[in-house]
């Protein structure tokens, strides 16, 4: 039995709409796969020891809170990008996803710098994009649906057409409600607007991250898990979205 370590970034500031459920999900599934999972919270001014981290997660926050974490994250940025290039699994939701781009302009016009990992930018508008969302996403060579709930004022645009979205929108808004793209996928990193939380009702996405962690560490996972309940919940929301409710 091995122990996998997930760094949970700023849980006190960046935890909107049940995002912490993603941590609960990974922790439990890793346990069911026969290993241990340690969720290590990283707060302001804490050191990030990448030698001992198998994955990184950061959730959404309000504009005010996003500003607070930016400065702290900037100090860690170079090292973090290097790790992501090397295949560190990472999940960035909503406000955290926006921070990965070059800039974020609030609807009042204030411009915040982003970490600039990817050539994308976000424009905030007063009218928020809210509702259930259904995507199609290809994670391990197979196109599968992803369900979630989005609630964001920001519209995110790719400035580099080579960037790959996390999925394509079947119903809902996605990055900007215009181009049908949702989120970003780069190596083992997923950036997305999807709350819900994302992972519990999309066990294949959770497993994509867990398998990436296991592979990097060279450990094997036990037999596939029984996802009857998860798949039921996934299908129920999917039906509801497709019925236009």
């Amino acid at each position: 039995m091995e122990s996998l370590v997930i760094a949970y970034m700023y849980p006190n500031l960046m935890n909107l709409y049940g995002d912490r459920g993603n941590m609960v999900c990974l922790e439990k599934r890793i346990g069911w796969y026969g290993h241990q999972c340690e969720v290590r919270t990283v707060n302001h001014n804490d050191r990030l020891d990448f030698q001992r981290i198998d994955m990184l997660f950061m959730g959404g926050g309000s504009d005010r809170e996003q500003g607070l974490v930016y400065n702290d994250l900037l100090v860690k940025a170079d090292k973090l990008m290097q790790e992501i290039e090397d295949g560190l699994p990472a999940l960035f939701v909503c406000g955290a996803y926006q921070l990965l781009g070059t800039s974020y302009q609030s609807h009042e016009g204030t411009v915040l710098n982003g970490l600039g990992f990817f050539d994308l930018h976000t424009l905030g508008q007063k009218e928020r994009l809210i509702g259930n969302i259904l995507l199609e996403s290809e994670l391990e060579g197979e196109l599968k649906t992803v369900v979630g709930f989005e609630n964001h004022g920001g519209r995110t645009y790719f400035d580099d057409e080579q960037l790959k979205p996390f999925g394509t929108v079947v119903k809902g808004y996605g990055n900007n409600g215009e181009d049908g793209r949702e989120g970003i996928r780069y190596k083992n990193l997923i950036g997305t607007y999807l709350h819900g939380p994302l992972l519990p009702k999309n066990p294949h996405v959770a497993d994509f991250l867990i398998k990436a962690m296991a592979q990097r560490r060279g450990i094997t996972l036990s037999e596939p898990l029984d996802d009857t309940i998860e798949n039921f919940a996934h299908q129920q929301v999917k039906n509801r979205i497709l019925a236009g409710k």
Partner: peptide, 16 residues
């Protein structure tokens, strides 16, 4: 959303 409450309970550690 019966499925969601079931998933939540399962991940809270309730016997499926």
């Amino acid at each position: 959303r019966s499925g969601d409450i079931a998933v939540r309970a399962k991940y809270a550690g309730f016997d499926p």
